[in-house]
Design a binder for these strands. Sequence first.
DNA 1: AAAAAATGTACTAAAAAGGTATACTTTGAA
DNA 2: TTCAAAGTATACCTTTTTAGTACATTTTTT
Lengths: 137, 137
Amino acid sequence: MRITQEADYALRIILFLSKKGTDVKVDAKTISESELIPSRFTLKILRKLTKAGLTKSYRGVKGGYSLNRRPESITLREVIEAVDGPICVNRCLYDKEYCNLNRANKCEIHKALDNVREVLIKELDGITFKDLIEKNN
Amino acid sequence: MRITQEADYALRIILFLSKKGTDVKVDAKTISESELIPSRFTLKILRKLTKAGLTKSYRGVKGGYSLNRRPESITLREVIEAVDGPICVNRCLYDKEYCNLNRANKCEIHKALDNVREVLIKELDGITFKDLIEKNN
DNA sequence: AAAAAATGTACTAAAAAGGTATACTTTGAA
DNA sequence: TTCAAAGTATACCTTTTTAGTACATTTTTT
């Protein structure tokens, strides 16, 4: 029932960039040193974030990364999903093949967990990086 | 962000026993066959549930398991926690040693995830096995 | 006393998480 | 016009967790 360490790092990276401002470019080394994330791993995560359209990358000397969207439009959910894949409380719901009862649509447990999942998503979608920056003041 | 397969099995076991009624004793083999849970694994899970006070066990010939509490008093949360341990969205929050930033109390990400955790717990605590049985009708 | 049940501990295999290595491409500046 | 500092892509490796099994023991009913 936990997000991965990788997603936690990703949230920290996006928060870091949000604090810098949308058009500020920062290189991966600076990010990894500021947030204490292993440097190769930082690059890997940034590639996922860039692929998801959350960050922009600049190659070459003086390259780096910046936010690709405004902090108020980025939610916790998006960042977590960019790294960990879709939010999901129970694998049976996400991957019906996996359900050894094949009752996914009838099973009361699964229906209840699906509601829990919706509540969770709604909550994660309700928190933006602008919210997080402002709380800081 | 998922409960384990083991917790999913546990929920199914408790639902199964809830449907039988509080004082009905069922042996592990019957449970495992009805719910398609590997038989040794069923026993292992039932031991955790018994330890947590959710089920009662009877040894010897004609032994088995029954619910130890009324379905209206057992929540999704309790069953999940009996098997997977405490509900936790981010390991840093649960295990402060683990947080490589050591900012757990200041970090806005962590504060936000802690709120998410509370929402999640509240939701899981709000659903009892009586609710699940009744939805079935 | 034998059989049918649960218990306890330890083990193992497979999958996922977390992180690293290597070879490559792009770009700015000397 | 090259070279160093950045990012890219793919593949690999190690550790931890998950999922499940094995085996010897204990309890209880018939």
